[in-house]
Nucleic acid binder design. Sequence first.
DNA 1: AAGCCCATGTAAGACGTTACATGATTGT
DNA 2: ACAATCATGTAACGTCTTACATGGGCTT
Lengths: 219, 219
Amino acid sequence: MTLRHAILGLLSKWDATGYDIKKEFDDFMSIFWHSHLSQIYPELNKLEAEELVTSRLVPQEGKPDRKVYSITNGGIDEITSWVGAPPDIPKIKDSFLMQVFFMDNISADDVIFQLKYYQGVRQKRLDEMKQTVQEAWESIVERQIMTPRLLMSSAVLRRGLEQEVQYIRWCEETIALVEACKSLWDTDTSPDSVLPFNDAKELMENYYNATLALENDEA
Amino acid sequence: MTLRHAILGLLSKWDATGYDIKKEFDDFMSIFWHSHLSQIYPELNKLEAEELVTSRLVPQEGKPDRKVYSITNGGIDEITSWVGAPPDIPKIKDSFLMQVFFMDNISADDVIFQLKYYQGVRQKRLDEMKQTVQEAWESIVERQIMTPRLLMSSAVLRRGLEQEVQYIRWCEETIALVEACKSLWDTDTSPDSVLPFNDAKELMENYYNATLALENDEA
DNA sequence: AAGCCCATGTAAGACGTTACATGATTGT
DNA sequence: ACAATCATGTAACGTCTTACATGGGCTT
């Protein structure tokens, strides 16, 4: 039940058609949300039936009519109370991390290939986001206004960027780790061997210590 | 179609019941996956019908019978090829970031309250994960073995921890930002005012420059 | 006495994805 | 010529969540 809030939130900013909403999702809001037109259109109908939004048809030449939606007072109430409501505990589904978790089933070289490929995917996203940040800042400077709305969207943009930067960095670190521990994949002969541990002992000790040392109270 | 891979991946490590699988999801795997028993049981039945897993009943005293599943060769093939397959582009749904995006609808104090609350939620998760990392390392030291399996799960654990640490840090930074820009919420009188920008100009310039300076090629 | 843990499921409904359907205009 | 963009939707299917159902044993 959050698609409705994504839509109502957007309509609290500007009037829009279902098509416009989809574009906004794919563009700026893709940092935290996504949806298909085939889900947006029925949801808009529901919202209209509940009188949280209203619509009017705007004819165009050579193009289909635009069905432009506006938020009602009821809609404003709904989005405002949702924004102030206790946030959900995050329900993460990261299928790539799951693949990594099970990559002991493939060769070290294949692991590195997968990590490099995914790093590239994330880099592309990061490049697009940097573009968006650039444009957002230029538009603020040009229009010479600062508002709570722009402030909060700046914070969200930054979070999106940070996320990409840090995932990319993790990919790099993990590639280095696997590279350094390639020998573990060779010695799958003796299942109870002690040797594999000694090979990687120092390295893993450092890795775990570094992990436990990760702290949130530094600058 | 990824729940089946979560299950097959687990069964490629140990035999388990549906109930065991659920616990593993909620524990170690919660970094990247979650599911309900009511979805796991039917999926196990499907996997058995497709002969990717087999089951046997293990009677117990005073408790219901355990239906223990084992992976078949077909199941191994399926999970291996999935792990080596091109990763999906990430489909993020972060309803808290969405709330933040629309928080221009509530007061600066309420924004700070929400951010602090969420920071606490994430801190709790982080503390639990640190516990898990500690235990994982102790078990490695105790058993004196290192394997690809343990290596990959260490990397995934680290990613989970990093994610929490960085989200918490972002909450802190954003609280500071909103605190510094509280005045923006007061001056909602004149909609086209130039003043609000000048108030926050330097601060925002720094913020955007810092955002654009975020780089992935540092240590 | 109340509620959680073990252990299995079914059923109904909400939410999300992919495919299908239409049709003019604009760009490569 | 072919694909993309604008703009609306429906239908079928797949996935996920919530509620219901059972029942002994253990803890507070």
